[in-house]
Design a protein around this nucleic acid. Structure first.
Length: 200
DNA sequence: TCCATGATTACCT
DNA sequence: GGTAATCATGGAT
């Protein structure tokens, strides 16, 4: 289950980290993945925590497939299924650095600023025209195309931190991102915490 | 059949 | 900096 240099049979944390730097294209539109989040079966913040349902069935299926869900009744969010078939783990794609089809993304988003095209899971879904019809599609055939990070350049430094927008397991550092990227949905603070104590 | 909830974003002051 | 918008899902009734 190797695709674009990423072993989708691995743990969601490993896959989430490995995906940073991989190029994701949907119908020729997309860019480099700069931010992801891992969700696992025994994870209170995961859609699969309470067991299989009609909505999350895809996450209990074959790895390297797309799991798409509606968020807050407004946004479409894109996840990649990982681990072994039937496990119920996935990786949320949170942000891209736009590289291909930027004009089409600008049209879909109604914006010009490249930094606002894909910096957030809902924005990314709108820019790539993701909807429920993509749920369950395999990632190794069109309209999806995953390209491994270039090997002739050093891999990007990956930051990690707590996940965003969840109410459970909020301290688990399963958010990953390219250090210093301007295309993140939010900056990472790891390493920037002042040394002085904040309380006694 | 009804109701509470959320892996978010945009717009208001 | 705060809050409204908006609806599919899933568990309760």
């Amino acid at each position: 289950m190797l695709l674009a240099g990423v072993d989708f049979a691995g743990s969601s944390h490993t896959v989430a980290r490995s995906l940073i730097g991989v190029t994701l294209l949907v119908d020729g539109v997309g860019g480099r993945i700069v931010e992801t989040e891992a969700y696992d079966r025994d994870d209170p913040a995961s859609h699969t925590f309470a067991g299989p349902t009609a909505r999350n069935a895809v996450m209990f299926g074959t790895p390297a497939h797309a799991y798409v869900y509606r968020s807050y009744g407004i946004h479409w969010c894109l996840n990649f299924v990982c681990r072994e078939a039937g496990h119920g783990a996935g990786v949320l794609i949170r942000a891209l650095e736009p590289t291909m089809g930027i004009d089409r993304m600008q049209l879909r988003r109604g914006l010009d600023d490249p930094r606002l095209l894909c910096s957030g899971p809902g924005r990314l879904g709108q820019a790539l025209a993701i909807d429920h019809g993509f749920n369950g599609l395999p990632l190794d055939v069109p309209p999806f195309l995953l390209l491994a990070a270039p090997t002739d350049r050093p891999a990007a430094e990956v930051s990690e931190g707590p996940r965003i927008g969840i109410s459970k397991a909020i301290d688990t550092p399963w958010r990953f991102g390219e250090a210093g990227s301007r295309f993140l949905s939010k900056p990472f603070n790891a390493g920037n915490t002042p040394a002085r104590a904040r309380d006694a």
